[in-house]
Every structure is written in structure tokens, then in C-alpha cells.
Design a protein around this nucleic acid. Structure first.
Lengths: 196, 196
DNA sequence: ACCTGAACACCGTTCAAGT
DNA sequence: ACCTGAACACCGTTCAAGT
């Protein structure tokens, strides 16, 4: 909220930070436990420079994750424009699943680093806003029960992060998301029973 | 074939293993990242002895977790004897949540160590059997839709492991489990709509 | 057969020294 | 102001030496 000037850095320092983030995305996606030393080296900076830009390893993981999730979140509004609310919601979940599996390394890195409260901070990010949009549209259309919060929703689909991307995860994800949709529909004004 | 029984250990070696497990339960519950060196020391053994009993740290975490989960799993049959199937299912979920929060350290340790395939092995343990019992009873009673697998169920309640035990998790868990119950009920023969 | 604990490899983080 | 990389602290795992 408070948008103060955050460190008017030197241009070269600025570039270092961006290089670190770019390398980190690649390396963390490949292996969740990529060492800071490797990331720094591939970014062409010393370890000290890394720690000048990020307080610790966890902060890096969170920042990369935050950026990636922004991309997914942004599609929510777009889906709502081109589809019926409940179709949009379901399709968004599918995309989230695909994304989560594609970037499984990142997901593991997240779980490893920040199980506790750090995720809560992310909670108030763009993803939550995207979810809010989807839920509101559905509530107004009467396709889901009233009163579902983004937090409810995020807990309900948490199983996605438990899937192994090297396995046959697609049917399992589909069954989970169908179940969640049915749960959300239960008690909706315009309830029509479970639909495939 | 006459099997060489799984290591007919010396009695003192046997006791060492049990001491390690007992200490590990306490230490891992307190802090998910309790060092092997600490656990070994508090159990009164050298680090080498630890690695004689467990191939690595992950194996220890999994074994402690397995034992603890057995306790919860065992209550499934008992609940089914004294309650209606859907009440039993819902109450079992509540107990699981409580248990998960009480042993949050362990849960974090699990997530940290074994996100990949190791959990799948546990999948065919007592917890899955307990869940199978509950789901079957409910399916026969017509209180949930047919065809729900233990895997479906475990993915649906995965959000529980994401709750912070130091926070006000109870209402959030309750809302999640209500949602899951409604999802399970959707399409049941004896469907009665969402009940509180 | 079983145990011990120093030694090794590795990783996150810091800091004295440089430009 | 910013950077580097050796140094430090710590942890998982191994292994030579003991009983």
C-alpha cells in the first residue's frame, strides 16, 4: 500500500537484481534446491551481491513465485469476459493446475521454504484478486453458494500442490477440481446439481 | 522359503532404534528441522548408530509420521460403530485436523522432506484403509456420491496441511471440511442438500 | 555385530577488502 | 555505493577405529 520510493538504485545494481531473478526462475524450476551460489554464479554476480538484493534465499523464492503467479492471476479477468462465470472458474482452475505442474520445481521450493506465514503475505496478492473476481461473478450469477471467500477456495484446491508432475496427474487433478466445483455449487440459488 | 527375518537384531540395538524414534517424535514435533545430531545425542547414541537404523533423515521422518498416522486411522472404525456414516466421516476429518495441528512440526517436516513420491508409499498405509472404510460406509448409506476414491479424498482435504497452527485455524478448517462434505454429497442417491 | 565421533561435503550467510 | 569471494557456521552422511 505505502508506495514509497524503494531504493533509487544505480542502474548496474538494478540490472544485477533482474539478472538474478531471471536466472532464479530457470534454476528453481529445474531444481527446487538450486544453491544460492549457483544462481549467483550463473547470474554473473558474487554471493554478496545476491544478499545485497535479497535478505535471504526464501525472499528470492517468494519473489519469483509472486511474479509467476501474477501471470496466472491476470487470466482470470480475461476468462470472465469470454465465458460463463462457472466455466471461467473451472477453466481457471485447470490452468492453475497446468501451471503448477509446469513449474513444479518452484512449487516444491515454496513448500520447502515458506510453509508458515510467508504464504499469507502472498495471499493478498494478485492471485487473491483474481479469485475474488471469479467468485464474485459466480455468486452474482447464482452458480455458487454465497459467502465463499478466496481463503476457502485456496484451501479447497490445495491438493493441486501435492500432485507429482512426473506422474499421471491430470485425471487426479480433474477429479479434485470437479469435487471442489460441486462443493461450491452446493446451496447455490441456481443450483442444478453436479455437472460434468 | 526360509527368510532371513528382517534383521533379528541384538536387543541393545533394538532398544537404540526405539529410543531414536521416541526422541524423534518429541523433537520433530517441537521443530521440524531438528538436526540428526541432536536427535542422536538426546537418544544417547552416536550419529553412526542413527545411520545404522535409518538410511537417511527422510526415512526417520516418514517412520515417525507413519506411526502417528496409524493412531488417527484406527479411530475410523471406532467412529463408524458409534455414529451415522456421514457424521463419522465428518468427525474423523475434524480429528485429523486437530491432530495435524497438534503435530504441526511433524507435518512441516514431512512436507520439507518428502514432497515427491515418498508420500505415495504411505498412501497404502493405515490411513488409506481408514478412509476406505469411511467412504464405503457412506457410499452404501447413500450419503455420498458413488466412486469417490481415497486418493480423491486425500487431495480434497490437503488444505489442512496448509493451516498455521499458531493462528486461528479452527474456523478455516471447519469451512474447508464443510465444503468438502458438500462436494462429496453432491450427486448422492440420498442427497439432501448441504447440511450444517 | 554394533557403536562412536571426528572428518568430509555442502550450503546459507557474513564481512573484510577492493573499485 | 556497490561488488567480490574467502571464511564461517551448520547440517547430513560416512568411515576408521574401537568394544
Amino acid at each position: 500500500m505505502d508506495e514509497e520510493k524503494s531504493t533509487p538504485q544505480r542502474p548496474d545494481a538494478q540490472r544485477n537484481r533482474e539478472r538474478i531473478l531471471a536466472v532464479a526462475l530457470v534454476e528453481l524450476t529445474r531444481a527446487a534446491d538450486a544453491p544460492v551460489s549457483t544462481i549467483a554464479k550463473k547470474a554473473g554476480v558474487g554471493q554478496g551481491t545476491f544478499y545485497r538484493n535479497f535478505p535471504n534465499r526464501e525472499a528470492l523464492v517468494l519473489e519469483v513465485y509472486r511474479y509467476e503467479m501474477q501471470q496466472v492471476a491476470d487470466t482470470a479477468a480475461q476468462l470472465l469476459r469470454t465465458r460463463a462465470p462457472d466455466r471461467a472458474l473451472r477453466e481457471w482452475m485447470d490452468r492453475l493446475a497446468q501451471y503448477a505442474m509446469a513449474k513444479a520445481g518452484l512449487a516444491v521450493a515454496l513448500r520447502t521454504t515458506a510453509c508458515n506465514g510467508s504464504l499469507a503475505q502472498l495471499g493478498h496478492g494478485p492471485v487473491t484478486r483474481g479469485i475474488t473476481l471469479l467468485l464474485q461473478a459466480n455468486e452474482e450469477a447464482g452458480t455458487i453458494r454465497p459467502g465463499v471467500t478466496p481463503d476457502d477456495f485456496q484451501l479447497a484446491i490445495a491438493g493441486l500442490w501435492q500432485l507429482d508432475p512426473h506422474s499421471d496427474w491430470q485425471p487426479r487433478a480433474a477429479r479434485l477440481l470437479d469435487l471442489v466445483m460441486d462443493g461450491l455449487r452446493a446451496g447455490a440459488p441456481g443450483a442444478s446439481g453436479p455437472r460434468a
